[in-house]
């Protein structure tokens, strides 16, 4: 049988597993990115608190402390591999007696990881806004928090739509590492097919193709979403990869 023929046979016999894996991968990537975005909003918000000398000491201290904790969080999750985080998280929780499923553990790790990256993305978005936006808002009597919520954040989020889409694409691929804690995503299913058929090369080429097609479709969808916001979508170029 030719190589292509073996690939096809493998696909026909393995597609229910691949489909199941793809479904898990997409759930992890999509929910993880959305959850990560919400956590990132929280993390960047506490980093954006404005400390004024005229405020009570307790207020100032708690603002500074929460900003510091948020920065430590981001440094930890950006500074360690997601693979290692998954291990620590999964075994750590089990050791503490917290029983948690593979999928739930994977989803939490993806979300926490994405949150750290998107916090940096949002920070860049906020920093790119003209300081005049803040001054104009403050000069109207808006508080620093109102300025942040009503003026700065909406503009930063809109500018960051492509980068958020980029994070989704990264997550579709990077969730592969969660196979190490037994999450039944696409790569895990690929390994299962490989080890039962002993067709390693073909199985992983098959898995690559499924990833590629999925990512290409995601890029197209994101292009349309970004167009709704008047922004350019992420592309599969070195430049867009450079954003993460």
């Amino acid at each position: 049988m030719t190589f292509l023929g073996r690939l096809w046979t493998l696909f026909v016999s393995g597609y229910p597993l691949l489909l199941e894996g793809l479904q898990t991968t997409l759930l992890l990537a999509v929910i993880g990115t959305i959850a990560g975005l919400f956590i990132a909003l929280l993390l960047i918000t506490v980093q954006s608190f404005h400390v004024m000398p005229g405020e009570p000491l307790v207020t100032r201290a708690s603002k500074r402390l929460s900003a510091r904790l948020s920065k430590i969080y981001v440094a930890f999750f950006r500074g360690t591999p997601m693979l290692v985080q998954a291990m620590v998280f999964y075994y750590g929780l089990n050791q503490m007696g917290v029983r948690i499923g593979f999928f739930a553990a994977g989803l939490i790790v993806v979300s926490l990881n994405t949150a750290a990256y998107l916090t940096e993305v949002l920070k860049a978005g906020l920093n790119s806004l003209d300081v005049g936006q803040t001054e104009a808002s403050l000069s109207l009597g808006m508080s620093h928090f109102q300025t942040y919520v009503r003026v700065l954040l909406p503009q930063a989020l809109k500018n960051m739509v492509p980068a958020i889409g980029n994070e989704l694409i990264v997550n579709i691929k990077d969730t592969a590492v969660l196979s190490v804690i037994g999450v039944g995503e696409l790569f895990y299913m690929g390994r299962a097919i490989a080890s039962t058929t002993y067709r390693y090369t073909e199985a992983f080429i098959l898995v690559s193709l499924v990833y590629l097609v999925t990512v290409l479709i995601a890029v197209e969808v994101l292009k349309r979403v970004a167009a709704l916001f008047g922004k350019e979508a992420p592309r599969l170029t070195s430049q867009s990869e450079g954003l993460v």
Partner: peptide
């Protein structure tokens, strides 16, 4: 003090050289 400044600024409006309209 945020309270003092907010109460004063709502009575003292400012127009800037570069407009600074809220772009969104």
């Amino acid at each position: 003090d945020p309270k003092v400044l907010e109460s004063v600024r709502k009575k003292v409006a400012m127009v800037f050289q570069s407009f600074y309209l809220f772009n969104h």
